[in-house]
Every structure is written in structure tokens, then in C-alpha cells.
Simulated assay, not measured.
Amino acid sequence: MNANLDRLTAEGVAIWLDDLNRERLAGGELAELVREQRVVGITSNPTIFAKAIRSGSRYHAQVGDLARRGVRVEEAVRALTAFDVRWACDVLRPVYEAGDGSDGRVSLEVDPRVAHDTAATIAEARALWWLVDRPNMFVKIPATEAGLEAISTALGEGISINVTLIFSLDRYDQVRRAFLDGMTRARAAGHDLASIASVASFFVSRVDTEVDSRLDRIGTPEARALRGRAAIANARLAYQHFERAVASDGWRALAAVGMRPQRPLWASTGVKDPAYADTRYVDELVAPRVVNTMPEQTLRAVADHGRVGGDTIHGTYAASRRLLDDLEAVGVSYDDVVRVLEDEGVSKFTASGEELFGQLDSELHATHATAA
């Protein structure tokens, strides 16, 4: 085991890997990360799968079978990604069974093209849950307006959900209300609440990227002094909102009958600006009951030279709020920043889906032509 990762785990942070591919599964690398690097969960996305299919030879046989059967690209994507997620769920099943079921989870996103279609998102969540057929899976649903009702409906049917693409505190509050609504429905439907899990994925580094670009355009000494501080402040305030929710009467009532908390998850924790420490979005966001999902490069950096010294969130709320006020004072609108980030996030989400579908469509056609 690694001392930094051990300390991080001891502080209550669940370490998840933001990557999944068949080479990693077949070569035993994922099992090694679970065994030796404290990894207790995995997230995936269409861009990760597109890269894996493009560069990994282990997909060729399955792609060939799908091409010979004349499977449409949408179903081919589901078949390939579900295969990997099911396999990863089995690798992590001992982690899931050894704990309370919060960890040992593997996430698979709904079709990004339906991000603004509630009914289609619900149908996709049901299909993926059935197809993977593992209790330690998460279906990822984006936190769009249309996604909120889909989140409640899916949870109400007993489907565990990773809510993704959260940037703003207001949207996070809506997500938490959707979670409680869904769990209330699940209880009314007779589901065991302890068997349903959820995380709320709050994106981090993209906030600094957007805010810093605005501060650079303003260019004053006051503006430059605020660079690189918005993302951590925003995430810390999200944790404050989480603590308030856990203390609420509605949350406590459902917790009394088995509901577990919807944990905050720090996503997009790879550092984009080389001027910043490459472990900052891990070191500065340590608190109990959070998940930090890291690219492997960030995970290795934390293990090597992370500065994990204890809880770095409690006691920061007032300063974090002042930081957002200071941004407003120099001309950076928080509301506009998070609106732009959500719009861009959904656009990037859709584009990554199109990349995956396009990549696999080319593979299917090439295989079909070769076979013919």
C-alpha cells in the first residue's frame, strides 16, 4: 500500500479511477490498482471508450461479431461498453461486498444525445441497468433540467445513479432534491433503500479553467490574485450544502429506514494549468464521505508526492464564500460562469458520444467490408 493513498482513505475519501478499457481488465491492471492503490470504484465516459476501441486490439473479435450480425451502431456501443462495465463490476465485487455497498461501483453513461430528453434518458437508464445486470453498477445521468426527473424516476425504480455534469451550487441543490424524491418513490414502491446508491459528481478543474480565462482578460492585479481559487472554493461550498442536506428532517427520515447518503464526488480532478500543483484537486478537497475520481496520472501523482495532511474542507466555508464575492467584485459573474460551463459540458458530453458512435461505426463498416 501507499502512505499517501492510505491517509486519503483514512480521512474518508473514496479513491475511484476515471478510466476503463479492456486492456486494463484483461491484463490484470485494474485488479492490481484495487489491490495495491486503494482504488474502490471506476468511472467511464464515451471519450474513454472511443479511445479504448480505437487503440485496443481486444475489441476486434466482438466488433467483428457485431458487424456480421448487422447490429446498429447504437446497440453495438451498448454491447461493447456493457461488456467492459460488467467485467469491471466483477473485479470490484469483493470491494462492494466487503463494505456497505457504497463503493466497488462502476459507472456507465446514458447515450449523451438524449441529455435533454427525459423519457429517452429514463429508457436508456433502464436498458443499461438490465444489460449490465450487476448490483454494483451506476448509471450516469447528466444534471440537466431534463435529467432531474430521469434521476428521480430511475432511483424510484431501484436503479443506482451517478449524477454527472454538476457545476453550480443551485443545480447541486436540485440534484439533491431529485435524489430525495427518487428515494421517497423507491420506498413507496417497496424497494430496499439500502440496496440503492447514488453519487453527485461535482466538476472541479473546469471551473478554474473558465474563471481564470475571465480573470486574465480583466488583467488587474486584483483579478490576477484570484486565479486558481474558484474551483476549490466552489467544491468546498458544495460540501457545505451536502452537510446541510444530511442534517435535514427529510433526509434523516429516509436514513432511518435504510437510505444511504448521496455522496459528493469530485470529478474533473486532473489539473489543466501546468502552473498549478498536479495534486491540488485531491489535496485541497479532503473530507469524510466524499469520492475523488482521478485519471491514472493524477492517482500516480498523489501516490508519489501528494500532500495529504487531513481534512481540508471543514473550516473553509466563510473564506470560500468570500472568494466568490471577490470574483463578483472584479467582474466575474458566478451565475454566468456556471451557466456557460453547464452548456459547454452538455455540448462536450454530446460530442464525446458522437465521437464514440462515429469511431465504432467506422470499425463496423471496415470489418463488414473485410468480411465481404
Score class of each variant (00 low, 15 high):
87 W>E: 05
155 L>A: 04
83 F>R: 15
278 D>M: 15
17 L>N: 06
25 L>I: 11
100 D>E: 11
67 A>G: 04
164 T>M: 00
256 A>Q: 03
5 L>W: 13
103 D>L: 04
340 V>N: 03
369 A>C: 04
343 D>K: 02
3 A>Q: 12
173 D>R: 15
216 D>R: 08
60 H>F: 14
209 T>P: 04
261 P>T: 09
132 V>N: 03
126 R>P: 06
127 A>K: 13
315 G>P: 12
123 A>T: 05
208 D>A: 11
97 E>D: 11
352 S>E: 12
10 A>P: 08
181 D>T: 12
273 D>I: 11
151 I>V: 14
213 S>N: 11
143 A>D: 00
145 E>W: 06
338 V>K: 01
163 V>W: 00
240 Q>E: 15
36 E>Q: 10
232 I>G: 01
351 A>L: 07
117 D>A: 07
365 H>N: 12
40 V>G: 01
83 F>G: 12
120 A>I: 07
184 T>R: 10
354 E>G: 08
244 R>C: 04
192 D>F: 12
245 A>H: 09
149 E>A: 09
280 R>W: 15
222 E>C: 09
50 A>N: 09
296 E>Y: 13
328 E>I: 04
96 Y>C: 05
302 V>F: 14
63 V>P: 06
83 F>T: 13
218 I>K: 06
148 L>R: 05
36 E>N: 11
99 G>T: 02
196 I>K: 09
359 Q>E: 14
85 V>K: 13
73 V>K: 07
28 G>K: 12
242 F>L: 04
110 V>L: 10
259 M>D: 02
319 A>L: 10
280 R>A: 14
41 G>V: 12
315 G>L: 13
25 L>T: 02
42 I>C: 06
95 V>S: 08
69 R>K: 10
139 V>C: 03
358 G>C: 12
47 T>K: 14
293 T>E: 00
267 A>P: 01
86 R>H: 14
192 D>C: 10
363 E>M: 15
254 L>G: 10
317 Y>E: 04
357 F>R: 09
258 G>H: 05
319 A>G: 12
240 Q>T: 06
9 T>N: 08
362 S>E: 06
254 L>S: 10
45 N>Q: 07
212 D>H: 09
298 T>S: 12
231 A>Q: 08
47 T>W: 10
145 E>D: 13
295 P>S: 13
68 R>D: 08
278 D>G: 14
300 R>F: 15
201 S>Y: 00
20 L>H: 09
160 S>H: 06
312 T>R: 14
280 R>S: 08
323 L>Y: 05
365 H>E: 15
64 G>E: 11
102 S>T: 13
159 I>G: 05
143 A>P: 00
94 P>Q: 07
142 P>W: 00
296 E>V: 07
279 T>P: 08
84 D>M: 12
313 I>G: 03
263 R>S: 14
227 R>K: 15
246 V>M: 05
173 D>Y: 02
92 L>R: 04
100 D>R: 09
216 D>F: 06
